[in-house]
Simulated assay, not measured.
Amino acid sequence: MAISHALPLQPIDVQPLGDRLPSEKSVALFKSEDLEVMRMVLLAGKSLPVHQVPGEVTIHCIEGRLDVTAEGASHVLAAGQLLFLPGDLPHGVIALADCSALVTIVLRK
């Protein structure tokens, strides 16, 4: 089954999930030829293993706290903070508290 994505000019709600956060899942919001945007949901203690993508990435913490590790350093994001990662940079993510974040990836051809 194909994932449905937002259409051009269609508003997308990215407000904090609040009490719904523990029951929500990560979801792709849209994907175009050059860009992909996802809402990542991670519960406290859950993580994404070290990985990398060819294009640049931003991680905007909407609620909670998460720790992005890259180049041997820890970068803790609280609600309202955004982190930029260059393309091909290995990084991992762990939720320090239940969190949701907006992840944007530039797609390299």
Score class of each variant (00 low, 15 high):
2 A>L: 12
2 A>V: 12
3 I>S: 06
4 S>H: 13
4 S>F: 14
5 H>R: 09
6 A>L: 14
7 L>N: 11
7 L>Q: 15
8 P>V: 09
9 L>H: 13
9 L>G: 03
10 Q>W: 01
10 Q>D: 05
13 D>C: 01
14 V>A: 00
15 Q>C: 06
16 P>M: 03
18 G>M: 04
20 R>M: 06
20 R>F: 03
21 L>N: 02
22 P>N: 09
22 P>R: 08
22 P>S: 10
24 E>L: 07
24 E>Q: 15
24 E>Y: 07
26 S>W: 10
26 S>E: 08
28 A>E: 09
29 L>A: 03
30 F>K: 04
30 F>I: 06
31 K>W: 09
33 E>R: 15
33 E>V: 15
33 E>D: 15
35 L>C: 14
35 L>W: 14
36 E>M: 14
37 V>T: 10
38 M>G: 03
41 V>I: 15
41 V>D: 01
42 L>H: 03
42 L>F: 08
43 L>C: 09
44 A>W: 03
45 G>T: 11
46 K>M: 12
46 K>T: 15
49 P>G: 11
50 V>I: 15
51 H>G: 11
54 P>T: 08
56 E>Y: 04
57 V>E: 04
58 T>K: 06
58 T>A: 08
59 I>M: 08
60 H>R: 07
60 H>G: 02
62 I>Q: 00
64 G>W: 00
65 R>Q: 14
66 L>M: 15
66 L>A: 03
67 D>K: 15
68 V>E: 02
70 A>G: 10
71 E>I: 11
72 G>D: 10
73 A>D: 10
74 S>G: 09
75 H>E: 05
76 V>H: 11
76 V>L: 12
77 L>D: 01
77 L>T: 04
78 A>N: 12
81 Q>G: 05
81 Q>D: 10
82 L>F: 09
83 L>E: 02
83 L>F: 10
83 L>D: 01
85 L>H: 02
87 G>E: 05
88 D>F: 13
88 D>N: 15
89 L>S: 08
89 L>N: 05
90 P>K: 12
90 P>I: 13
90 P>D: 07
90 P>G: 09
90 P>H: 08
91 H>Q: 10
91 H>T: 07
91 H>R: 13
92 G>M: 08
93 V>M: 07
94 I>H: 03
94 I>R: 14
95 A>R: 00
98 D>P: 03
99 C>K: 00
100 S>Q: 03
100 S>G: 07
101 A>Y: 01
102 L>R: 06
102 L>I: 06
104 T>Y: 01
104 T>L: 09
104 T>W: 00
104 T>I: 11
105 I>D: 00
105 I>P: 00
106 V>M: 08
106 V>W: 02
107 L>F: 04
109 K>H: 12
